[in-house]
């Protein structure tokens, strides 16, 4: 059943109390503006452990800003953010950093470092975060990460030599190499052909199963949504417009939602 989302403080509190241990991420009345442009007007949502939550919305609806607020690339103007049960306002900056290290972020463009090889791209986060690792451990982690995304043969080439799909997979491998508990995907299938999009979507599901990650997937690709979503939230004009499963949305009578889901 498709729910119009109008969260009140009490609703959230009750839900939080009931399921607190299951939430890996929670937002309460998050707001973000850029000058006069109120991108996020009042966002409240939760991400359950082991869940794939897809956030759908038109371009400019604030989807990317929303997940950038989670990792700290954008700072929310108002609202509360809980990561793994901790309100980030109540803990020290160093603890926030430690919590955010448990979050992986796959950028829309892959954001691969052009000046480095595939191997160096994967080694970079390892060397920065896990200083005590030996060369052998780093090599085995790099090999495992590349094997997971089917790029074992591309270890010594530069990202410019990779196709769009391979770049996305490498971006995913780089994010997964630190074994994050929460994964944030920013439009993982944008700019890819339907076959590669399907491959990436399947990879997202495989990753979730293999590492038991909880994921937020930002997209406007309905095929990707169908393949990956356990739950869907639709953003419209900076607020959560609706929430439900894929079949709820598919059978919705709402004209705007129908236009989104029609093939």
């Amino acid at each position: 059943m498709l729910n119009k989302l109008i969260f009140s403080e009490t609703d959230i509190k009750t839900e939080t109390d009931n399921l607190k241990s299951e939430y890996v991420l929670e937002m309460k009345h998050l707001k973000k503006s850029f000058g006069e442009n109120h991108v996020l007007q009042d966002i409240s949502l939760v991400l359950n452990k082991g869940e794939n939550l897809v956030i759908l919305g038109q371009s400019g609806s604030g989807k990317s800003v929303l997940i950038k607020c989670i990792v700290g690339l954008n700072e929310a103007d108002e609202g509360k953010l809980f990561i793994l049960g901790n309100n980030i306002e109540d803990i020290k900056a160093e603890e926030v950093i430690e919590l955010r290290k448990k979050i992986g972020f796959l950028f829309q463009s892959g954001a691969l470092y052009d000046s480095m090889t595939v191997r160096e791209n994967l080694e970079f986060p390892l060397r920065r975060q896990l200083h005590s690792l030996t060369k052998e451990t780093i090599n085995s982690l790099v090999s495992e990460a590349l094997e997971n995304v089917g790029l074992s043969d591309s270890i010594d080439i530069t990202p410019s030599e990779l196709s769009g799909g391979m770049r996305k997979r490498l971006g995913l491998a780089r994010t997964l190499i630190l074994k994050p508990e929460i994964m944030l995907y920013d439009e993982p299938t944008t700019g890819l052909d339907p076959i590669t999009s399907k491959e990436i979507s399947k990879l997202i599901v495989e990753v979730q199963k293999k590492y038991n990650t909880s994921s937020i997937i930002i997209t406007h690709d309905i095929e990707c949504t169908k393949l990956t979503a356990d739950r869907i939230i639709v953003l419209r004009n900076g607020i959560c417009e609706a929430e439900g499963s894929y079949s709820d949305f598919e059978n919705s009578e709402d004209e705007w939602i129908k236009s989104f889901f029609e093939k």
């Binding site: 700290g72 690339l73 950093i97 955010r100 954001a111 052009d114 920065r128 975060q129």
Partner: peptide, 20 residues
């Protein structure tokens, strides 16, 4: 040019989320 292209392709953001 190098830093600008890193900025527009989100490489600088990627570095920040790698806690560099």
């Amino acid at each position: 040019a190098e830093l600008a292209s890193m900025k527009v392709t989100e490489q600088i953001d990627a570095m920040q989320v790698s806690w560099t």
